[in-house]
Amino acid sequence: MSKPLLSVVITVYNEEDNIRPLLEATYSALSEIDYEVILIEDGSTDRTVAEVKKHANERTKLLIFNRNYGQTTALAAGIDQATGEYIATMDGDLQNDPTDIPQMLRKAIDEEWDVVAGRRANRKDGFVLRKIPSKIANWIIRNTTKVYLNDYGCTLRVYKAEIAQNMGLYGELHRFIPVLAKQQGAKMTEMDVKHHPRIHGTSKYGLSRTFKVMADLILMLFFQKYFQRPIHLFGGLGLLSFLLGSLISFYLLILKLLGEDIWGRPIMILGFILILGGIQLITTGIIAEIIVRTYFESQDKKTYRIKAIFQGKAEVVSSGK
């Protein structure tokens, strides 16, 4: 069987009311394209699976996780299964519009872009809980990573398959996909896409995600700037720490020679706790992340387990894969 031109990867979690209109809109939008649709069911507790089986056509593959893993892992699984020359990703909540995909694909092909990212021109989300945190996060990511996109939170994107399938998605790094793609030398552009208010279901995002994004940003900056030369980071911090410690020690030595009692002074205790403790925590987190990546990639292990795969309405892979 020849490869399709486009694989559309859609993540769904508790979206039973959205499945039918989602699939109908997707099939209609892609009617003139050689496509496949890959739905990743991320451990839903409602009738999402039943709805997909009911309305899926023969070009649709359904991946059913044994539990909820999160959006990044679901995207990684769908991208792993994709066979198209290009891969499009989108959310399953009907806020992304599949009618934008053909135009994005044409732009990628005609102008030879590796990634075409969606930019929600008229975003239909809450101002305080969604738009403001998103704008702040976008500004921070854009100016720290130097990857200048306006909307990191829009899942609707089109990639060349070789870019998407070599990004190494782990944890909750889906917001940083443009940064991961840029590390591979991808040529990227943006285009305005439609965005709709959520009609069915509830949002899985909240303010608590802001702190996770900031933590992931630290990791992304490390991989972007220091992964191949970590001594430039840790060596610099080590030298700074050593110099600060030496200055404190020299200052306390002078006081000691002048006859003053230096034991138990806050400057000595606080200095040791903040400097040594801070460096230890940061380096421990980064080293742990490297160990996780080494564990999975060196043994070709996946960060998820698929319970079953359906092609159209027929099961093609049973549990255990």
Score class of each variant (00 low, 15 high):
L258I: 00
L105A: 03
T73N: 14
I279K: 08
G235R: 04
K146S: 15
K307L: 11
R123P: 12
E190C: 09
E260D: 13
I262N: 04
Y152N: 01
E111V: 06
G259S: 09
F227W: 15
M191F: 03
L252I: 05
V37T: 07
T155K: 07
A74N: 00
M268V: 08
Q165W: 02
Y152W: 06
K54Y: 03
E111T: 05
E112D: 15
D216H: 12
Q81L: 09
K61T: 12
E15I: 00
Y13H: 13
Q71P: 01
M1F: 04
A121W: 02
Y170W: 08
L276E: 00
P178W: 11
E162G: 08
T99V: 07
L156H: 11
D216E: 15
E36M: 00
L156K: 07
G278A: 05
D125V: 09
E162W: 10
I132Q: 05
A29P: 05
I231W: 15
I306N: 03
K107H: 12
I291R: 14
L270A: 13
P178S: 05
A74R: 08
T99M: 10
D91P: 06
P102L: 02
R293P: 06
Y159C: 03
E260S: 12
V8E: 03
R175S: 08
G168Q: 05
F310D: 11
G245D: 05
R47I: 06
G285P: 09
V37N: 01
L217Q: 06
V37D: 01
L30I: 11
F223H: 10
K321C: 07
A161Y: 06
G171H: 08
I136T: 03
A77E: 02
I101Y: 04
G84H: 13
H174P: 07
K135L: 15
I163W: 04
S318D: 07
D300Y: 13
T72H: 11
F250K: 01
T202F: 02
I40S: 13
I64S: 06
L255D: 13
H232T: 13
G312F: 08
Q81D: 14
F127D: 12
I218Q: 13
P21V: 13
